[in-house]
């Protein structure tokens, strides 16, 4: 079952994107915080980590969107009922 040209698999992946963005951001912040505590550069690494995490989150979203667009244009994704 799919809506609006998206397959069931696409819906699931889209629903994961928000959480993936959040995890990427937290990963960047965590890494920056750890580097700050090691090098004593508070708060610069934290800020850099936040920006890098933000960029990574957007990269994940853009990549997923591009992949779905490519599959839709190829017109070969009809996986809903179990067979390609």
């Amino acid at each position: 079952m799919g809506f609006g040209g998206f397959s069931k698999q696409d819906h699931l992946q889209i629903s994961s994107l928000g959480m993936e963005f959040a995890v990427a951001e937290l990963l960047g912040i965590g890494l920056g915080f750890w580097l700050d505590s090691k090098c004593g550069t508070t708060p610069w690494m934290l800020l850099v980590g936040a920006v890098v995490g933000f960029a990574l989150g957007f990269y994940i979203i853009f990549r997923a969107a591009k992949e779905m667009e490519r599959q839709a244009q190829a017109g070969k994704v009809k996986k809903d009922n179990g067979r390609s």
């Binding site: 994961s16 959480m19 993936e20 995890v23 990427a24 990963l27 990574l56 990269y59 994940i60 990549r63």
Partner: peptide, 17 residues
């Protein structure tokens, strides 16, 4: 590296969800 990290994040999201 971005692709490798994003794959690891996908697996992390499985657990968190």
């Amino acid at each position: 590296p971005l692709e490798i990290i994003s794959t690891i994040i996908k697996v992390c999201v499985l657990a968190i969800r």
